[in-house]
Structures are given as structure tokens and as C-alpha cells.
Amino acid sequence: MMAGRRVFLAALVFAAAWGIPAVAEDIGDAVRGETVFQRQCSACHQIGPEAVNRAGPRLNGIFGRRAGALADFSYSKAMARMGNDGLTWTLETLDAYVANPKALVSGTRMNYRGLADPQARAALLAYLREWSDRPRDIPEAEPTARKTDHDLDPAILGIKGDPAYGEYLSSECTTCHQRDGSDQGIPSIAAWPAEDFVVAMHAYKQKLRPHPVMQMMAGRLSDEEIAALAAYFSTLD
């Protein structure tokens, strides 16, 4: 494990040195995940277009579905209650459930001890994800990869305070916020004092400010990136 981790870091340093863009991480190895599914799950669950309910519910379309939501399957009271309380199956909730079912849903009827190996779980989830809605067709569908932790960026890319980077990042803002400061439906951010900009973006990042588009945009900016953007926008007249 340690060796693997070191190789990964070495690859990132290499990428940084050569300016190769960093990439997001896949959920896991879906090919291995199919084997995990066959060994661990298929006694009770089916998946795929022809799947039907067995001892457990069919698993196609599970990502983004409320817990206990299939009308034609009889769930435990505990699972139905979790669904009513708002439990939805996502990468995070499914990972927790597969790791230890009874920790997430105390009275679940799923009689499974849990899968301790995180890589095996990731592989399984990657396989299961292939049988749920595709974001290309249904944009609100659950993600298919794990977000890059953008707070790593400055160290990895050595781009701290790069004004060119601030301008490049700003091209994502100007799809909605006009560079010339027009203010119609979407507020102007041109010539905004840098300090106010930074405070506002962190409030979106922490989801204190409520707007979903801005939460998403700010959520993947590192502190240095927010500072670079603030500096860039504060110079626009």
C-alpha cells in the first residue's frame, strides 16, 4: 500500500514538472468490481436491464435513488424510514452502507457483514455506477468520478499567485458574469474589492451562501485560486 501511494505521488510530481494537467480520480476499477459483485452480492441482488428483485432489490438505477424507493420491493421498516428521512444512494452513502450495513441502517434486512477493503468497495461502486443514469443524458445524475481536491493544486502545480492562471480561471466566471460589468439577473463581479471577493467565495465554498451554482464553482477552487481570481477581477474596470 505504502509503495503504491509513493508511486502515485511521484507521478503527480512528474506531471507538475512537465505541465501535464492533473486528472480526476475514477470511482474505482469497474472490471474488478464485477467480480466483487458476483462473489459478494449476486446471491441476493441482480443488476442490468433484465434485473429483477430477488431476496434483495434490483440495483440498476440505484445511484440517486431514495433508500427504500422501489414500489415493487418490500423493504424493512428501517430502510423505508431511512428513505423517508431523506437517505439517498450516492457514492458516499453506498460506500458507508457496503462497509457496514447496520451502522447506516440499524434494522436493515441485508444480512451482510460488510466489505472492509476500501479498494474493493470502490471497485464495486464503479461497477454498480455503470447501471445507473448517465450524466450525459440526465445532467443531474450522480457523479461518475471523485472530485480532485483542489487545495492540493498550488503544491502540485506550482502556480501560486500566477496572474495568467487567474485570468484562465476567470473564463469560467464570464460565461455568466459579464466582463464589462453588466448587471442583469446575474450580479456584476468586475472591479469588486479583492477582500470582499475572497470572503464571498469562501462563504459559497463552505455552503454558507445558498446559491447552488456558486457553491459548485467555489467548492472546487483552492484558497490560492480564489485569491488569484479576486486579484484579477479587482483590476477590471
Partner: peptide
């Protein structure tokens, strides 16, 4: 109403990493 997502490249594809609706 609106729906949106952010995306990042993985080795295989441009992948959705976060969405809202």
C-alpha cells in the same frame, strides 16, 4: 428551473464530479 454539474477529465472521459438540480 436549472440543473448543473462540474466536470473533470479522468483518463477515460470527462466525468461528472458534482451536480445539483
Amino acid at each position: 428551473v436549472k440543473v448543473g454539474a462540474s466536470y473533470e477529465p479522468t483518463p477515460e472521459k470527462i466525468a461528472s464530479v458534482e451536480s445539483f438540480i
